[in-house]
Design a protein around this nucleic acid. Sequence first.
DNA 1: TGCGTTTGCGCAATCGGTTGTTCATTAAGG
DNA 2: CCTTAATGAACAACCGATTGCGCAAACGCA
Lengths: 334, 334
Amino acid sequence: MNHKNITIADVADALGVSKTTVSRAISGKGRISENTRKRVLDYIEEHDYIPNVIAKGLAQSKTYNLCVVMPRENMFVDLPFFHKVTAGIQETAEQNGYDILLCLCGENEVTGLERIVRNRKVDGVVLLRTLVKDLQIEFLQKRKIPFVAVGSTWYSGVVQVDNDHESACREMTSLLLGHGMKKIALLGGNESYVVMKNRYQGFVEAYVRSQMQIDESLVFMDLMDYDMTGYAVDEALERGADCILCMDDVICLHVIRLLRAKNVRVPGDVKVASFYNSSILENNQPAISSISFDARELGREACKNLLALTQGERVSQKTLLSYEVRLRDSTGQL
Amino acid sequence: MNHKNITIADVADALGVSKTTVSRAISGKGRISENTRKRVLDYIEEHDYIPNVIAKGLAQSKTYNLCVVMPRENMFVDLPFFHKVTAGIQETAEQNGYDILLCLCGENEVTGLERIVRNRKVDGVVLLRTLVKDLQIEFLQKRKIPFVAVGSTWYSGVVQVDNDHESACREMTSLLLGHGMKKIALLGGNESYVVMKNRYQGFVEAYVRSQMQIDESLVFMDLMDYDMTGYAVDEALERGADCILCMDDVICLHVIRLLRAKNVRVPGDVKVASFYNSSILENNQPAISSISFDARELGREACKNLLALTQGERVSQKTLLSYEVRLRDSTGQL
DNA sequence: TGCGTTTGCGCAATCGGTTGTTCATTAAGG
DNA sequence: CCTTAATGAACAACCGATTGCGCAAACGCA
């Protein structure tokens, strides 16, 4: 800016070589003697020269920028998750000389994304949230821009990285069934439809494997707000649920509050468990069993795949990451 | 990228004018007839031409990028706040043709910031969190890079935008004192030292104005963890506190849990209030009185100031934003 | 009509890199 | 010893914009 940064021309002049040589010394491409190469690199090191990524980008029609898209308005519970994922993305990006441009979009809005993609010419995009009908996905596909979705989607041809919700839910359900639960209620929340379906899949599978009869009336897929959650809890209790499996930690805390208000004891009368094991659970009484995902790793994986994509490499359509079941007091002693 | 975007040269050729003319038509600078101007703009509109910001930046030695710095590891309670501030920054940035580069840094780490500043040549930086001894501030000042701090700092010459914690705390304290509280405990938390000091200032002032005696032994400035908070609560009760003013909502929820465990009724025996009015409070029983800040507006204001700074304009050193006191059940009927 | 001023626009350099091509030098091969 | 190939480095065009300067046409005024 004002500091009058040293340019490649300065380096070239100082060493009495051409810009080309300096450029080649740095990139390692093209023919150059080991000798001059070293000379250039030493000089650069000494004088703390950093190439201007912008000019480099202009010349290469690349920007070394990735765009991370996330909702402008954010559910409280998503934030820590999104933040960790972003940290993971950024970590991998930085290791490869990329930086992160932030795109905060309204739900299913494309104008912001389009602006950034078009006049920033980002090399790739990570979508942190996708919808069943997703205009951003459609836009990116139409424009043939490399992108990766964090989380699952039903769009075809989308490279996805997700937690293995199905297995996670299967394992948790199996554990619960294996320890005497008979009627587990499944409470969906603000999760995307696809995630919910995946978990339901695992839920069903667990029942099948333990050869028990599933009670479909205990499955509540789409609870938009606290009121509906309250209703679902009432219904579940009415129908004799002995366990409530919540789709995220915020819902879970709320459920526990509701149960306390009804003088239903946890885990005495009803067991409770949830997903994400977020820090919102810390210090809760009783300690809540939850499934923990490594959000950071999710971000790293997504970024790795995206970079591969931008190189034109083939990338596996769907990467599933592992999870850990954390059992605590709210499910009793399993 | 692959879509082979239309460039300024294409536009110029198509219209039979020079690149200069097109450029001038767009920027409005330089001499150009109203006639050609319109012709160019129409063509651009029609053919959906978007200038390449990168090239523009290269030519102008600007990047139209701002850098937002926030901690890589984040306290749970900060996140929603940071996210909203960022949204505000982004909003104003976008309106002015700027985009946001994300810089996630470790506490008091500069390497990441330095990298981004040096090879991305961002036009300005927003620091979302500052420390008493802050290497990032020192770095930015040394390099004379325009930046704005969200929150207060004791460094001189730093443009700051902050909530008016002092007035907020004064008003809340006054309200409480005015309705019969005599011994209010002040519980500091993960807040920065400066914020805490500001609030303490307001706290003292409220006591002075109502001509009441402050009990300094009820002021706990620096509670690093839950254990210390527990200790502070015990002490406060011991010393006959009739009200606990918590420095953030997470602390507050924890305090309420502790009180419940001790069978201290809220607001019956002790009143409780906190800061930030974050959505974590939603649906809590009892509803918690809290002070609400407009984080989004904070971000907008910060960005506005930063942009002014980059233009070389003079900017007021400190901008304080307003707040709203939200009284609910936890403080009884005030 | 004549001359100075204003207006409208284009030329070409520039920003800081990359890269295909050329050219001189050295090495290898017969 | 001459031809051919390989090597190392420089030239110059290019990426896509901006901008100082120059030039011609139009305008204003006496």
